[in-house]
Design a protein around this nucleic acid. Structure first.
Length: 875
RNA sequence: GCGGGAGUGCCAGAGUCUGGAAAAUGGGUUGGACUCAAAAUCCAAUAGCUUAGUGCUUACGCAGGUUCAAAUCCUGUCUCCCGCACCA
């Protein structure tokens, strides 16, 4: 075990034992809630990709704590879910046992990261003490009318044996097992997230601390579009067919209508006709199978005429009705009007099935010909072949008028459509929160009384792999109706685990609270979360659901804020050998191995220093070695060194203050990589000048440095801080930046001197003799004169300087010099000769030490055409 | 197709918002010092030419433009990555 591994263990034990990071709910300090998305405790354990995620949060939490905030930084486990249950079926372990083992393993791994969590606040969603409140929330939402049971086309994953929410289907496949999803019409429990579609969309604008990417994804997912519902008549019937369109200006160009094949109305329409069998076949064989196969970029449009006709309400034209695979059953009304002339999909379909194309919008410059068109005309234009009221006007401008006209005739109404669907929350699986409902033959579905909560998940069930194990548990299923008292059956579906994770961050505020899921008082103090950290993959899952929950809770007066997460940070992934780390790829770098070998601080410094935390990085073994070496160098700085001179005191004070300032700014912006670089530069400097400052100043700077660096390498810093001060560096006060100690001209001097050093080295290398003495001669040069000229101009205004330059016709020479003048100002650039001499004198001792030779500084009044830098003479 | 991001040395990656001496920092490579030796550490070099130089020439995907001055701003274009996608 390495030195750092030992130091790590030592401090982790101390932090744990003395509950150093315990947080008080009644502090007078300003609060700061820092949170990482809690993990699902899988059996696989943590790899360095996870470590990076948690390290990002810990740096921020530690920083805020040092800055004097009362920081809530908790951790917990999203412990319900399918993998545990599948393990039960496969390996014959109970999901509870599997989960407990995984949680234990995760906890020890998380602790070995040294994150400053308050472990007393841990929550596990599979504990009764947690999921009881899931049920409590369910009842609150149910009573508020936000939960309903309804039949709808839903996504069914055969391999998971359960239904899925829309958000959990990616490219037609299950997000967990990647099995292809089927569409089934089933009765299920839905959470009416669509009631909040508008607010969820509107308030995205206010999420200033969120990445634009995530906001856009949510916007697209909610997918609001303004349009018109138009009622078409069904020929030979009193019935009407309602369609949704965003283009009422093309109503006069409708030449057919299309139903989604699986639309329930379709079979009704063809019942008893010669089309019945054909339609049935089409729906079963072609349409549904094709719905989610997105292997081809342009999927072929397939459809068929169903033998029925509709009547266009604006011109009474009789138009054929089709079914086709490009119409979605659950968007709009599941039926569309088709305008082949002005919609590309409709156009392609019409061409394929020889349906007429009617032009109703034309560009100003030329006319269209339905016969020769090769694609739909979707641009702006003037209306033609329509109602005389609208012919000739610009289509976009006419939309308002057309809508008005439709509304007057009562054949249409303006409406808003969303892509967002209600959230399907029931799952036909065991390892989740039982839905607290009872089905009574008399009373229908009845909620469990609040006093009867929790509805405990029975542990004594059989896992056969067929159906929901709860169905086989008599004690669970057989129950009395909470309304009429007669025999009834308990609901055996459990909740989607995203229900659990939609409010867990509220429970952290007081995980012992017994009178409700959370205490209003704590909500007012702690919420919203100030900084949330997690993966972008949750953009339209967890992050959307949680926003919805908070808005619903607000309307139930359970709390009083609008958004759960003020700031969101989405971290990048860690790759190895060009691929995402995963067991199947066989490229997993295990956290434990790295911690054991290099110590946890090395792992942290490496993962955070590699690139900006939001970027994907590639794990490299050389990199972690480098971090390890760097920490060793820091560790070496603890050794006391004899005080030789005090030459660098001012420099050091300037440097440390600048460092504090830069690190502070960069942590705030999550530029951890830059912050670490500044720290490395400082350490290099510190080891260079050690011995040339008084111990007092050195120790003071070093102590401040330790506080700053403790965000990144807390264990090492605790260890070193112990030699300097009492208490924990983790609980120290962030050093104040003393602005007037920051002296940039000192850095200029330093550049100047290091330039001399490197020149002398070059010369020494060249002369190949054993020199006894070095003379540095400070001399004039033409550039020196030029600077002087500028000084005489006396203006720092760029244009004036440039004017002068242009007049003298010396553009080329000047253009190289002017930038530094403008950037630094004339006075700074112009290290006057006297100053140079003084500088060299001041640094003589250091130069002598460097070269192990005597150095003499001379002024040369006769110097001509010599460099601005001193000439060097080796004797 | 729509939306977002990115293209800088041998590699990773700063710099772009706010134009002003391009390449911080780390890795790698080469040379040197210290070692019996290795590791570690330290020093130097690492686009080209050149030198006792704050020298010259190239150079921030490609092509243009604005400017005294462009990696940075503008226009066009190519490539890659991510998200959404038959949404009527």
């Amino acid at each position: 075990m390495g030195k750092f591994t030992e130091i790590g263990k030592k401090w982790q034990e101390k932090w744990d034992k003395y509950k150093v990071f315990k947080v008080d709910n009644n502090s007078k300090k300003e609060k700061c809630y820092v949170l990482e998305m809690f993990p699902y405790p899988s059996g696989k354990g943590l790899h360095v990709g996870h470590s990076r995620n948690y390290a990002i949060g810990d740096v921020y939490a530690r920083f805020k704590r040092l800055k004097g905030f009362n920081v809530l930084y908790p951790m917990g486990f999203d412990a319900f879910g399918l993998p545990a249950e599948n393990a039960a079926i496969k390996a014959n372990v109970h999901p509870k046992e599997y989960t407990e083992k995984a949680v234990k393993n995760f906890t020890s791994q998380l602790k070995s990261l040294g994150n400053s969590y308050d472990w007393d606040r841990e929550v596990r969603t599979c504990d009764v003490s947690y999921y009881k409140w899931n049920q409590w929330i369910f009842l609150k939402l149910f009573n508020a009318g936000l939960i309903e049971r309804k039949e709808a086309p839903v996504n069914w994953c055969n391999s998971c044996g359960t239904v899925l929410a829309n958000e959990q289907v990616e490219d037609g496949s299950c997000w967990k097992c990647h099995n292809e999803v089927e569409i089934k019409n089933l009765e299920q429990w839905f959470l009416k997230i669509t009631d909040y579609a508008d607010e969820l969309l509107e308030s995205i604008k206010e999420l200033e601390g969120w990445p634009g990417k995530i906001k856009t994804m949510q916007e697209n997912w909610i997918g609001r579009s303004e349009g018109t519902l138009v009622n078409f008549k069904l020929k030979d019937s009193e019935e009407e067919i309602q369609i949704f369109t965003t283009r009422p200006d093309t109503l006069w160009g409708v030449t057919y209508m299309v139903y989604a094949p699986e639309h329930p109305k379709v079979m009704e329409l063809v019942e008893g006709t010669e089309y019945e069998d054909k339609v049935k076949k089409f729906v079963d064989n072609v349409a549904l199978g094709d719905r989610y196969s997105r292997t081809d970029d342009d999927k072929e449009k397939m459809g068929m005429f169903i033998g029925r006709y509709g009547i266009n309400p604006v011109n009474n034209e009789i138009i054929p009705i089709y079914i086709a695979n490009f119409v979605l059953p659950d968007y709009g009304t599941g039926v569309v009007m088709a305008v082949p002339a002005h919609d590309q999909r409709d156009f392609e379909f019409a061409k394929k099935y020889n349906i007429p194309i009617k032009i109703v919008i034309e560009p100003e410059e030329y006319s269209l010909d339905a016969e020769t068109m090769i694609k739909a005309y979707v641009e702006e234009g003037k209306i033609v072949n329509s109602d005389e009221k609208f012919n000739g006007s610009t289509n976009l401008e006419a939309i308002g008028g057309i809508n008005h006209y439709l509304e007057e005739l009562k054949i249409g109404e303006v409406t808003t459509q969303y892509k967002l669907r209600d959230w399907l929350i029931s799952r036909q699986r065991y390892w989740g929160t039982p839905i607290p409902m009872i089905k009574c033959d008399e009373c229908g579905y009845v909620p469990v009384d609040e006093e009867d909560l929790p509805v405990k998940l029975p542990l004594d069930v059989k896992f056969t792999g067929e159906g929901n194990p709860l169905l086989g548990s008599k004690e669970f299923v057989d129950v009395k109706c909470s309304k009429c008292g007669k025999d009834a059956k308990r609901e055996t579906d459990t909740m989607d685990t995203f229900f659990d994770s939609s409010w867990y961050f509220l429970r952290y505020c007081n995980n012992k609270f017994e009178e409700g899921a959370f205490d209003r008082k704590d909500m007012d103090y702690w919420m919203p979360v100030d900084q949330y950290i997690g993966g972008a993959e949750h953009a339209v899952l967890h992050l959307l659901y949680a926003r919805f929950f908070i808005k619903a809770f607000r309307d139930l007066k359970l709390l009083n804020f609008d958004e759960p997460f003020s700031k969101l940070f989405t971290q990048g992934m860690v790759y190895k050998d060009g691929a995402k780390m995963s067991k199947s790829e066989g490229n997993v770098v295990n956290q434990d191995d790295m911690v054991e070998k290099y110590g946890v601080d090395s792992v942290r410094v490496f993962l955070l220093g590699l690139a900006h935390p939001s970027k994907t990085v590639e794990w490299g073994d050389e990199g972690i070695e480098a971090s390890f070496r760097f920490l060793s160098r820091v560790y070496g700085l603890k050794d006391k060194v004899k005080e030789e001179s005090k030459d660098y005191e001012k420099h050091l004070e300037s440097k440390i203050n600048k460092l504090i300032k830069e690190v502070e700014e960069n942590i705030e912006e999550f530029n951890y990589n830059i912050a670490l670089i500044k720290i490395m530069e400082f350490v290099n400097y510190l080891s260079k000048i050690k011995g040339n400052v008084s111990l007092e100043i050195y120790n003071d700077a070093f102590k401040k440095f330790l506080v700053v660096f403790s965000c990144f390498a807390p264990h090492l810093c605790e260890e070193l801080y112990e030699h300097h001060d009492e208490g924990y560096v983790s609980l120290a006060k962030w050093p104040e930046v003393i602005e007037n100690k920051i002296d940039l001209s000192l850095e200029k001097e330093e550049d100047f001197i290091s330039g001399i050093v490197s020149d002398v080295h070059a010369v020494l290398k060249l002369v190949k003799i054993e020199p006894k003495k070095i003379k540095l001669i400070v001399a004039d040069s033409w550039k020196y004169e030029l600077f002087k000229n500028f000084k005489e101009v006396g203006s720092r205004d760029m244009k004036e300087v440039m004017g002068k330059v242009l007049i003298e016709g010396r553009e080329k020479e000047i253009s190289k010099l002017v930038p530094s003048l403008i950037k630094k100002g004339i006075d700074e650039v112009l290290l006057e000769r006297e100053k140079e001499v003084e500088l060299l004198e001041r640094n003589k001792r250091m130069l002598e030490k460097e070269f192990k030779l005597e150095v003499e500084v001379l002024e040369d009044d006769n110097g001509k055409a010599l460099p601005l830098k001193p000439a060097i003479i080796i004797e």
